[in-house]
Structures are given as C-alpha cells and as structure tokens.
Amino acid sequence: MNVDFGSHFSQDALELYALGVLSEHGCSDVEEHLLICPQCQTQLEAADEYIRVVRTAHVLNSSRAQRVSHASWDAASESL
C-alpha cells in the first residue's frame, strides 16, 4: 500500500478544521494529510491568520459602532 502526497484539501476544508467544526472523522483525515504536506500546513496557517483577522475586525467594528452611538447620543443630549 502506497501513500500519495499529492491530494490536497480545499481551503474551505482547512478553514473548517481551523475553526474546529469538522467531524472527528474529517478531522483525522485532515490531520493525517497535514502530517506529510507542507503545502497544506502553509494553507492552514493562512486560514488561522485570516480567522484571527476577521474576529479582531468584528470586535473593532462593533466597539467603534458603540463609540459612534455613544458620541451621537452625547451630541443629541447636548443639543437638547
């Protein structure tokens, strides 16, 4: 029985793995491939980074939105 290094996982699959939402079976398939595939390791690192960026951006966005609404409330209450 031979191991083929050539079959890579899609970016979507690696993103699901990075989010930790893959099934146990899917997870083991991805991890076994990652053990021998530097290309997918790099893709997974990119997916990890992208998820961190999206999460941080969401937090920044909502905290800015909050600040804006506070500021407009202050402005409105001042004019009243």
């Binding site: 980074e49 961190r52 960026v53 999206v54 941080t56 951006a57 969401h58 920044l60 966005n61 800015r64």
Partner: peptide
C-alpha cells in the same frame, strides 16, 4: 502587520451590508 490586516478587514466589513456582516 496584524493590526494593519485587521484594519483592512474593518474596511471590508464596512463595505458589506448589515446582513452580509
């Protein structure tokens, strides 16, 4: 570099509709 990326993503999120966000 990470902060800059997060800022790019904030711009991306801003360009999306509420529903897409």
């Amino acid at each position: 570099a990470f902060e800059q990326k997060a800022e790019f993503m904030v711009s991306v999120l801003d360009s999306l509709s509420e529903r897409d966000r």
